[in-house]
Amino acid sequence: MSFELQNAFEQAQQEVQGLSEKPRNDVLLKLYALYKQGTVGDVTGERPGGFDFVGSAKYDAWASLRGLSREEAQREYVNLVETLKARR
């Protein structure tokens, strides 16, 4: 993993916290999934069940990225944050 990508990813994590407007839920799920794939890799464990709607949505979003490399997930995360910043 390149040092530059890692720095950009860490910077994007900080910048997303400072967005003037909270992103829609679907965008938040995408950010969550890309972050997890970029830091942990493929989803592990069992999908939350029952009435854990938030947990299930997060798991499904992350699972949808299965097989995506950590580097590519970090690039996509950085690009998504840049897009959100441009919308301010």
Results as ranks from 00 to 15, higher is better:
residue 70 R to D: 02
residue 65 L to W: 12
residue 47 R to S: 07
residue 29 L to P: 08
residue 50 G to H: 03
residue 77 Y to E: 03
residue 13 Q to E: 12
residue 83 T to P: 00
residue 27 V to C: 00
residue 49 G to N: 02
residue 42 D to C: 12
residue 44 T to R: 12
residue 63 A to D: 11
residue 43 V to G: 00
residue 82 E to K: 13
residue 78 V to C: 04
residue 85 K to P: 04
residue 13 Q to F: 07
residue 60 D to W: 09
residue 59 Y to E: 02
residue 76 E to D: 13
residue 15 E to F: 07
residue 32 Y to W: 11
residue 16 V to I: 14
residue 7 N to G: 11
residue 83 T to H: 05
residue 21 E to I: 14
residue 34 L to Y: 04
residue 53 F to R: 05
residue 81 V to R: 01
residue 8 A to I: 04
residue 36 K to I: 04
residue 2 S to V: 05
residue 9 F to Y: 11
residue 67 G to D: 03
residue 77 Y to D: 00
residue 1 M to H: 14
residue 43 V to E: 02
residue 33 A to L: 06
residue 32 Y to D: 07
residue 16 V to N: 02
residue 45 G to I: 03
residue 51 F to S: 13
residue 31 L to Q: 00
residue 54 V to S: 10
residue 46 E to H: 07
residue 67 G to K: 05
residue 88 R to D: 13
residue 34 L to S: 01
residue 81 V to H: 01
residue 18 G to K: 14
residue 88 R to P: 06
residue 46 E to L: 09
residue 7 N to S: 10
residue 56 S to I: 03
residue 62 W to Q: 03
residue 83 T to D: 13
residue 25 N to E: 14
residue 82 E to N: 12
residue 13 Q to K: 15
residue 55 G to F: 02
residue 14 Q to T: 01
residue 20 S to F: 05
residue 2 S to K: 11
residue 55 G to P: 00
residue 17 Q to G: 09
residue 48 P to K: 07
residue 2 S to Y: 10
residue 65 L to C: 13
residue 41 G to S: 10
residue 71 E to Q: 15
residue 64 S to A: 15
residue 67 G to Y: 12
residue 2 S to D: 14
residue 26 D to T: 09
residue 50 G to P: 01
residue 19 L to A: 08
residue 31 L to H: 05
residue 5 L to K: 07
residue 65 L to F: 09
residue 62 W to K: 03
residue 79 N to P: 04
residue 58 K to D: 04
residue 26 D to F: 12
